[in-house]
Design a protein around this nucleic acid. Structure first.
Length: 907
RNA sequence: GGGCGGUUAGCUCAGCGGUAGAGCGUCUCGUUUACACCGAGAGGGUCGGGGGUUCGAUCCCCUCACCGCCCACCA
């Protein structure tokens, strides 16, 4: 006998071990089985499972289990990511906290060694947490982005792209993170709104040049008054950059400054003469219309500088302090300190014209949180534009589809405007760039040092000495190869042949650019086919107030704590049921409790079945059942199977969860088991046996259909129900086949009959509650106008009606007796003998209200049917439906009116 | 500035052209031998505002408002 409630804590580890030991997580080796493949979005190897992982991985597991049960060779390939900056940051912080020397003092080798140690210590955590989630990954294929195979793939890709001119080294401005002292990609920069100011500076014109500048205007905007100026005004939000100015730009058509183009200004403080140039970039409507140009520290200015031939003077060190290109008094000064100092000096010297306070967006490093500086360095770039074209096409043609589809727009938008991808990082934790520098800056890009030397010797002779590039690659570079590198590429492994391209990628929208688009680019380029057939974008989990979870806000929901408290299945069901939401999932514990209760409900339904001897019967064929309730539930199982299968194929996880919930709770528990009780307690042995067998069969189907979402409780019940007798289980539930049941098992007549029964019981219950008939009272039911069909139903379900509606006698009569309340029973009308309980006034009010309801229905529908346009243009079935509705409402109204009259007659 | 979502019952959300739905919460009733992590019943919505298309609009189109996110922007 089952315990009173399910105890997830004791069951989950045991079942997980049993699944893994059974080999169920490995894909079927049957060559005829169609593959179904998911590669996991690799979590940070040193990370821990947060609720977003829980959602993402639950959905992957639901799909994997579903397709596995459907007979596919299901592979869910797990692994972890080395997460360059994030991991390096964690370890550096640890070193600092422990009072150790920093990474620069340790040296590269020792530091990297230390990171590997940290990985060894904490690297198992996340995968163990995935196991606690029930993830049925094939752990025998687990990969890590820095393991040897994947590193080989990275080198191969880098070299090949280089040799195809799709990857190159270039000196240009990058987003420089002064905290980590590395370049980062555009995607790793986030714009934050900050309080700032425009500081307006007057730069004096050289050689005593003056010009007439308009200062007053008429209604049409024409200048009416001029003043003579010997300076030009520029504005900036970063005053310290003026030390690196090499020009001032004005728009070529700007009348105000036309005469100044070609003249010089003398840069204050520095004393450098810099030219005034004409460039379209200068916007006459912004500020003074003249803009200072700092080519080395501003992306736009860099372009102006190139066009106008202005030099780029770098004034910053890697930590964003002023370097020795600036006057001595500012050297070594922090950029923000310098800003203040410059402004103070400008004010003092009188060339600060105005301070305009403003809020503006300032780029920050997404990891470091510090202000990013545009910085002139040599970096490696991937020609993303070229790689993006086939990636765009794959989605445009539907080779890969997004679900929900609207994310395709986001994907297109980014890829169509893609910029070169800076892939080098001045970090230590990551894939070392396979490039070596020789004399005169020549570069040798090869997969191995030997190959690089071989190439270099040909050019420079045997004594050549090469220096390896010190940098590592952007973590996303290796992540971009994930769908094929994890299968063993560049080796020609059986897995590559069998499992590429993969089926569905399940991931968050926040990494469509970082990861999905890049996998598409690399996958197509190197494998000739897009890496996935479908990209399923899951929502972002937020707290119950809708705020993004973050450690600093303290609103992080720990999925493992929830699993401990409420069980893994409840957490999984909740996430599955809520996953339909477009962008956000607002998670509340209450909701999870609700689904924990759902599990308990199923558990208790199984207990009930056990107590009533509902043991599975060998060779039981649901096609042969004769009892209406059994025919009916058989059809409901078929319908549910259809709904769940369709939903999981889409996938529409919330719909699958909804169908399961409704069927199990509202159909099977609320009605079938209640309807079965009289039979199970009755004398008809044949009906009893059939109902027991049917119940056991339905439960089996429930366990199978629910298993992908709630794997633990279903597997446990699968096992426990087999221990009560009946045929032995052939396999663990995880390895059991998804059913394929015939539509012909849906019996319309049985469904109508049970529907009638359910409605009648509902009517009577509702009536009793409204009229305050005590639960213990058993009023008689007299049925008026019962035809043959209704009489048959009445006789077949008399016991059920009596018990479910708590009735006394049921009789057939010619006319409704006095002191009764009407019950709609299809064609017939029930008269419930409630005289002794009736509050006449209350009952009159109830009937009046109900009649009013029908009257408004009749009016509405009648009006519609009276509209010739409606009759002429609406679909015929809609017209029929309305006619039927009108007839029903009129009949019901008549019955209620009759009842009301009888009541009036009574007093 | 460009784009994408959203606005439906107290809360969280489904529905997306033909009688407004679910879960939770609320209220009433209930120890009927599976389950109080339960059962029965009830109340609760002019589907953000305004136009339009249509026989018919929560659903399609236009527009406005508000909320959220992404991209760009440091004169």
């Amino acid at each position: 006998m089952l315990e009173k409630t399910f105890d997830p804590k004791s069951v989950e580890p045991r079942l997980y071990a049993a699944w893994e030991a059974s080999g169920a997580f490995k894909p079927s080796e049957d060559p005829s089985a169609e593959p179904f493949v998911i590669v996991i979005p690799p979590p940070n190897v040193t990370g821990s499972l947060h609720i977003g992982h829980a959602l993402n991985n639950t959905l992957q597991d639901v799909l994997t289990r579903f397709h596995r049960m459907r007979g596919k060779a299901a592979l869910w390939l797990p692994g972890t990511d080395h997460a360059g900056i994030a991991t390096q940051m964690v370890v550096e912080r640890q070193l600092a906290a422990a009072g150790n020397i920093g990474r620069r003092d340790m040296g590269r080798e020792a530091f990297v060694e230390r990171v590997w140690e940290w990985k060894a210590e904490s690297g198992g955590a996340i995968t163990n947490q995935l196991r606690r989630l029930g993830a049925s990954c094939d752990w025998s294929r687990e990969r890590f982005t820095l393991d040897e195979g994947l590193s080989a793939a990275v080198r191969k890709v880098f070299v090949q792209l280089y040799k195809q001119n799709l990857l190159y080294r270039d000196k240009r401005l990058v987003n420089w993170d002064p905290q980590f002292q590395t370049a980062i990609s555009d995607l790793e920069v986030e714009q934050r709104e900050v309080d700032g100011a425009y500081w307006h500076f007057a730069y004096p014109l050289a050689d005593g040049v003056t010009y007439e500048h308009p200062v007053a205007f008429d209604d049409e905007g024409k200048p009416t008054q001029y003043e003579t100026r010997d300076y030009i005004v520029v504005a900036t939000t970063r005053p310290e950059t003026m030390l690196g100015d090499t020009g001032v730009a004005v728009h070529p058509s700007d009348e105000r400054y036309k005469a100044l183009v070609g003249k010089d200004v003398v840069l204050p403080i520095v004393g450098r003469r810099i030219p005034i140039v004409a460039d379209d970039y200068a916007d006459p409507t912004k500020g003074s219309g003249a803009v200072k140009i700092t080519p080395a520290h501003d992306f736009n200015d860099f372009g102006v500088g190139k066009r106008a031939g202005l030099p780029a003077i770098n004034i910053l060190t890697p930590e964003a302090k002023l370097n020795d290109a600036v006057p001595a008094e500012y050297q070594g000064m922090d950029r923000f300190a310098a800003r203040k100092a410059i402004v103070a000096r400008a004010e003092e010297e009188g060339w600060l014209k105005e301070i305009e306070k403003t809020k503006h967006m300032v780029p920050h490093g997404d990891r470091s949180g510090v202000v990013i500086e545009p910085y002139l360095t040599d970096q490696w770039y991937v020609d993303a534009y070229t790689l993006a074209q086939p990636a765009l096409k794959a989605v445009e043609t539907g080779e890969t589809v997004f679900e929900p589809k609207h994310w395709e727009k986001t994907y297109f938008e980014w890829l169509r405007n893609i910029e070169p991808w800076c892939v080098s990082r001045q970090l230590w934790w990551g894939h070392r760039i396979p490039a070596w520098f020789g004399p005169d800056g020549s570069i040798f890009v090869e997969e191995t040092e030997e190959a690089a030397y071989a190439a270099a010797r040909e050019q420079f002779g045997a004594d050549v000495v090469l220096n390896r590039d010190e940098d590592v690659l952007d973590t996303w570079f290796s992540s971009a190869l994930w769908p094929f590198s994890t299968l063993g590429w560049p080796e020609k492994t059986p897995d590559v042949a069998r499992f590429y391209p993969t089926s569905t990628l399940v991931t968050g929208f926040d990494i469509i650019f970082f990861w999905v688009a890049r996998m598409m680019m690399m996958g197509i380029h190197f494998m000739g086919e897009a890496p996935f057939k479908q990209v399923f974008i899951n929502a972002l989990v937020r707290d119950e107030k809708g705020a993004k979870m973050s450690k600093s806000k303290g609103n992080v929901i720990d999925p493992l704590a929830l699993i401990d408290e409420l069980g893994c299945d409840a957490v999984r069901f909740t996430l599955t049921a809520m996953s339909g939401q477009a962008r956000d999932i607002k998670l509340s514990k209450q909701r999870i409790e609700g689904y924990r209760n759902f599990g308990t409900k199923l558990w208790n339904a199984t207990r009930f079945a056990q107590m009533n001897g509902c043991i599975r019967v060998e060779g039981f064929d649901p096609a042969t059942v004769t009892q209406p309730i059994n025919k009916w539930i058989r059809g409901e199982v078929v319908k549910t199977l259809g709904e769940v299968t369709k939903a999981l194929e889409a996938p529409a996880f919330d719909e699958a969860a909804g169908s399961l919930y409704r069927f199990i709770w509202n159909v099977f528990c609320d009605w079938y088991l209640e309807l079965a009780k009289p039979i199970l307690n009755g004398e008809d042995e044949a009906a009893k046996a059939e109902t027991r067998a049917t119940t056991a069969w339905v439960l089996d189907q429930i366990l199978i259909l629910l298993h992908p979402v709630m794997p633990f409780i279903t597997e446990e019940l699968w096992d426990q129900t087999a221990q009560e007798g009946g045929p032995a289980r052939e396999a663990l539930l995880i390895s059991t086949s998804w059913p394929d049941l015939p539509e012909s098992w849906i019996d319309a007549e049985a469904a109508a009959e049970i529907g009638w029964l359910v409605d009648t019981v509902g009517e009577i219950r509702s009536l009793r509650a409204e009229m305050n008939v005590p639960p213990s009272a058993k009023p008689a039911l007299a049925v008026v106008g019962a035809g043959e069909g209704t009489q048959g139903r009445l006789s077949r379900h008399r016991d059920l009606l009596v018990s479910l509606a708590r009735l006394g006698e049921i009789s057939l009569v010619e006319a409704a007796p006095a002191g009764t309340a009407p019950v709609v029973m299809g064609e017939a009308t029930g008269a419930l003998g409630v005289a002794e309980f009736i509050d006449v006034a209350a009952e009159k009010a109830r009937l009046t209200k109900e009649i009013a309801g029908h009257v408004s229905e009749i009016e509405k529908t009648g009006k519609k049917l009276g509209n010739p346009d409606f009759l002429a243009r609406a679909k015929p079935e809609v017209v029929d439906e309305n006619r039927e509705r009108l007839a029903e409402a009129e009949a019901a109204k008549a019955k209620l009116e009759a009842a009301l009259q009888r009541l009036a007659a009574m007093g």
